[in-house]
Protein backbone atom coordinates (compact mmCIF):
# COMPACT_ATOMS: atom_id res chain seq x y z
CA UNK A 1 0.00 0.00 0.00
CA UNK A 2 2.85 2.42 0.87
CA UNK A 3 6.11 2.35 -1.02
CA UNK A 4 9.08 4.62 -0.38
CA UNK A 5 11.86 4.41 -2.93
CA UNK A 6 15.22 6.25 -3.26
CA UNK A 7 14.09 8.93 -0.84
CA UNK A 8 16.44 11.78 0.00
CA UNK A 9 16.03 15.28 1.32
CA UNK A 10 18.36 18.23 1.63
CA UNK A 11 17.77 21.27 3.82
CA UNK A 12 20.49 23.53 2.53
CA UNK A 13 21.34 21.95 -0.78
CA UNK A 14 24.64 20.61 0.59
CA UNK A 15 23.86 18.03 3.29
CA UNK A 16 21.57 15.35 1.98
CA UNK A 17 19.78 12.82 4.17
CA UNK A 18 19.10 9.53 2.45
CA UNK A 19 16.50 7.02 3.55
CA UNK A 20 16.24 3.29 2.96
CA UNK A 21 13.51 1.93 0.73
CA UNK A 22 10.58 0.37 2.55
CA UNK A 23 7.08 -0.93 2.05
CA UNK A 24 4.04 -1.11 4.33
CA UNK A 25 1.00 -3.27 3.57
CA UNK A 26 -2.66 -2.28 4.00
CA UNK A 27 -3.30 -2.30 7.80
CA UNK A 28 0.36 -3.14 8.29
CA UNK A 29 2.77 -1.51 10.73
CA UNK A 30 6.31 -0.16 10.59
CA UNK A 31 8.61 1.08 13.33
CA UNK A 32 11.24 3.63 12.33
CA UNK A 33 13.95 3.81 14.96
CA UNK A 34 16.75 6.31 15.16
CA UNK A 35 18.66 8.62 17.46
CA UNK A 36 18.47 12.36 17.40
CA UNK A 37 19.70 13.92 14.17
CA UNK A 38 19.23 10.82 12.05
CA UNK A 39 16.34 12.38 10.14
CA UNK A 40 13.35 10.76 11.88
CA UNK A 41 11.22 13.91 11.86
CA UNK A 42 12.27 14.67 8.28
CA UNK A 43 11.12 11.19 7.21
CA UNK A 44 7.83 11.64 9.08
CA UNK A 45 7.26 14.98 7.34
CA UNK A 46 8.09 13.42 3.97
CA UNK A 47 5.67 10.56 4.57
CA UNK A 48 3.08 13.02 5.84
CA UNK A 49 3.29 15.13 2.68
CA UNK A 50 4.44 18.13 4.73
CA UNK A 51 7.65 18.42 2.71
CA UNK A 52 8.49 16.96 -0.67
CA UNK A 53 11.65 14.95 -1.34
CA UNK A 54 14.30 16.27 -3.73
CA UNK A 55 14.65 12.73 -4.97
CA UNK A 56 12.63 9.54 -4.79
CA UNK A 57 9.02 8.54 -4.67
CA UNK A 58 6.42 7.95 -2.00
CA UNK A 59 3.51 5.98 -3.38
CA UNK A 60 0.40 5.65 -1.25
CA UNK A 61 -2.61 3.78 -2.61
CA UNK A 62 -1.03 3.84 -6.04
CA UNK A 63 -0.36 7.56 -6.14
CA UNK A 64 3.04 9.22 -5.92
CA UNK A 65 1.91 12.08 -3.72
CA UNK A 66 5.43 13.49 -3.37
CA UNK A 67 5.03 14.85 -6.89
CA UNK A 68 1.71 16.57 -6.24
CA UNK A 69 1.31 20.34 -6.33
CA UNK A 70 0.60 22.11 -3.05
CA UNK A 71 -3.19 22.32 -3.27
CA UNK A 72 -3.53 18.72 -4.45
CA UNK A 73 -1.12 17.62 -1.75
CA UNK A 74 -3.20 19.43 0.93
CA UNK A 75 -6.26 17.54 -0.24
CA UNK A 76 -4.44 14.20 -0.46
CA UNK A 77 -2.98 14.64 3.02
CA UNK A 78 -6.35 15.53 4.51
CA UNK A 79 -8.02 12.50 2.94
CA UNK A 80 -5.39 9.80 3.38
CA UNK A 81 -2.96 10.67 6.16
CA UNK A 82 -3.41 11.15 9.91
CA UNK A 83 -0.53 12.37 12.04
CA UNK A 84 -0.07 11.98 15.80
CA UNK A 85 2.35 14.70 16.79
CA UNK A 86 4.77 14.39 19.68
CA UNK A 87 3.19 17.33 21.46
CA UNK A 88 -0.57 17.43 21.72
CA UNK A 89 -1.66 20.84 20.39
CA UNK A 90 -5.25 21.74 19.57
CA UNK A 91 -7.24 24.78 18.49
CA UNK A 92 -7.70 26.29 21.93
CA UNK A 93 -10.67 28.49 21.14
CA UNK A 94 -12.95 25.52 20.45
CA UNK A 95 -13.94 22.55 22.58
CA UNK A 96 -13.00 18.87 22.30
CA UNK A 97 -15.76 17.77 19.93
CA UNK A 98 -15.43 20.85 17.72
CA UNK A 99 -11.71 20.17 17.29
CA UNK A 100 -12.63 16.75 15.90
CA UNK A 101 -15.53 18.07 13.80
CA UNK A 102 -13.27 20.74 12.29
CA UNK A 103 -10.68 18.16 11.23
CA UNK A 104 -13.42 16.06 9.60
CA UNK A 105 -14.69 19.13 7.78
CA UNK A 106 -11.21 20.12 6.56
CA UNK A 107 -10.75 16.64 5.09
CA UNK A 108 -13.83 17.23 2.96
CA UNK A 109 -15.96 14.70 4.85
CA UNK A 110 -19.34 15.43 6.35
CA UNK A 111 -19.27 15.84 10.11
CA UNK A 112 -20.15 12.45 11.57
CA UNK A 113 -21.10 13.00 15.21
CA UNK A 114 -22.06 9.35 15.70
CA UNK A 115 -18.59 8.18 14.69
CA UNK A 116 -16.92 10.95 16.70
CA UNK A 117 -18.91 10.11 19.82
CA UNK A 118 -18.28 6.39 19.44
CA UNK A 119 -14.53 7.00 19.35
CA UNK A 120 -14.70 9.49 22.20
CA UNK A 121 -16.46 6.84 24.23
CA UNK A 122 -13.86 4.27 23.27
CA UNK A 123 -11.02 6.46 24.57
CA UNK A 124 -12.95 7.57 27.68
CA UNK A 125 -13.45 11.20 26.65
CA UNK A 126 -17.19 11.25 26.05
CA UNK A 127 -17.75 13.24 29.24
CA UNK A 128 -15.26 15.83 27.96
CA UNK A 129 -16.88 16.65 24.62
CA UNK A 130 -17.92 20.19 25.51
CA UNK A 131 -14.81 20.96 27.55
CA UNK A 132 -12.01 23.23 26.46
CA UNK A 133 -8.90 21.31 25.42
CA UNK A 134 -6.98 23.44 27.95
CA UNK A 135 -8.89 21.71 30.74
CA UNK A 136 -7.75 18.20 29.74
CA UNK A 137 -5.06 16.29 31.63
CA UNK A 138 -1.88 15.28 29.78
CA UNK A 139 -3.21 11.73 29.38
CA UNK A 140 -6.51 12.97 28.00
CA UNK A 141 -4.69 15.29 25.61
CA UNK A 142 -2.60 12.42 24.31
CA UNK A 143 -5.72 10.29 23.72
CA UNK A 144 -7.41 13.16 21.91
CA UNK A 145 -4.23 13.67 19.89
CA UNK A 146 -4.43 10.07 18.67
CA UNK A 147 -8.17 10.31 18.11
CA UNK A 148 -7.76 13.38 15.91
CA UNK A 149 -5.38 11.45 13.63
CA UNK A 150 -7.91 8.67 13.01
CA UNK A 151 -11.11 10.72 12.90
CA UNK A 152 -10.94 11.13 9.10
CA UNK A 153 -10.50 7.36 8.61
CA UNK A 154 -7.14 7.78 6.80
CA UNK A 155 -5.24 5.05 5.00
CA UNK A 156 -2.00 5.87 6.81
CA UNK A 157 -1.38 6.96 10.38
CA UNK A 158 1.99 8.42 11.32
CA UNK A 159 3.00 8.81 14.96
CA UNK A 160 5.93 10.94 16.06
CA UNK A 161 7.52 9.77 19.35
CA UNK A 162 4.17 8.82 20.88
CA UNK A 163 5.70 7.15 23.95
CA UNK A 164 9.06 8.83 24.53
CA UNK A 165 7.99 10.84 27.57
CA UNK A 166 5.84 8.12 29.14
CA UNK A 167 6.48 5.51 31.83
CA UNK A 168 6.04 1.82 30.97
CA UNK A 169 2.39 1.65 32.06
CA UNK A 170 1.35 4.67 30.05
CA UNK A 171 3.52 3.55 27.14
CA UNK A 172 1.50 0.31 27.04
CA UNK A 173 -1.78 2.20 27.22
CA UNK A 174 -0.87 4.55 24.37
CA UNK A 175 0.41 1.77 22.15
CA UNK A 176 -2.68 -0.28 22.84
CA UNK A 177 -4.88 2.67 21.95
CA UNK A 178 -2.96 3.36 18.76
CA UNK A 179 -3.28 -0.28 17.82
CA UNK A 180 -7.02 -0.40 18.56
CA UNK A 181 -7.88 2.82 16.72
CA UNK A 182 -5.70 2.04 13.72
CA UNK A 183 -7.45 -1.32 13.37
CA UNK A 184 -10.82 0.37 13.84
CA UNK A 185 -10.26 2.51 10.74
CA UNK A 186 -8.25 -0.18 8.89
CA UNK A 187 -5.21 2.08 8.45
CA UNK A 188 -1.51 1.34 8.19
CA UNK A 189 0.63 2.60 11.08
CA UNK A 190 4.15 3.99 11.00
CA UNK A 191 5.76 5.01 14.28
CA UNK A 192 8.88 7.15 14.24
CA UNK A 193 10.75 7.06 17.57
CA UNK A 194 13.97 6.63 19.47
CA UNK A 195 12.11 4.65 22.17
CA UNK A 196 13.74 1.22 22.11
CA UNK A 197 10.94 -0.24 24.29
CA UNK A 198 8.83 -0.46 21.16
CA UNK A 199 11.27 -2.72 19.30
CA UNK A 200 9.66 -5.88 20.65
CA UNK A 201 6.20 -4.87 19.54
CA UNK A 202 6.97 -4.60 15.83
CA UNK A 203 8.02 -7.26 13.36
CA UNK A 204 8.57 -4.79 10.59
CA UNK A 205 11.11 -2.08 11.45
CA UNK A 206 13.91 0.01 9.98
CA UNK A 207 16.68 1.84 11.77
CA UNK A 208 18.05 5.20 10.69
CA UNK A 209 21.65 6.04 11.36
Amino acid sequence: MLNAKDLSYSYDGKTTIGFPDFHVDQSGTLLVLGDSGTGKTTLLHLLGGIISPQKGKIILKGEDFSALRESALDKFRAEHIGIVFQEAHFIRSINVIDNLRFVQRLSGDKVDDIFINSLLEKVGLLHRTKHSTNKLSQGEKQRLNILRAVITKPSLILADEPTSALDDTNCDKVMSLLDTLTKEVKASLIIVTHDNRLKERFDHKIELS
Binding site: K75, R77, A78, F85, H89, F90, I91, R92, V103, S107
Partner: peptide, 16 residues
Protein backbone atom coordinates in the same frame (compact mmCIF):
# COMPACT_ATOMS: atom_id res chain seq x y z
CA UNK B 1 0.44 32.55 19.89
CA UNK B 2 -1.44 30.37 17.39
CA UNK B 3 1.44 29.52 15.07
CA UNK B 4 1.28 25.82 15.95
CA UNK B 5 -2.53 25.72 15.62
CA UNK B 6 -2.32 27.19 12.12
CA UNK B 7 0.34 24.66 11.13
CA UNK B 8 -1.90 21.86 12.44
CA UNK B 9 -4.77 23.20 10.39
CA UNK B 10 -2.55 23.09 7.31
CA UNK B 11 -1.57 19.50 8.10
CA UNK B 12 -5.23 18.58 8.40
CA UNK B 13 -5.97 19.93 4.95
CA UNK B 14 -6.60 23.67 5.30
CA UNK B 15 -5.23 25.51 2.28
CA UNK B 16 -3.04 28.60 2.75
Amino acid sequence: DRKYELALMRVNGASP
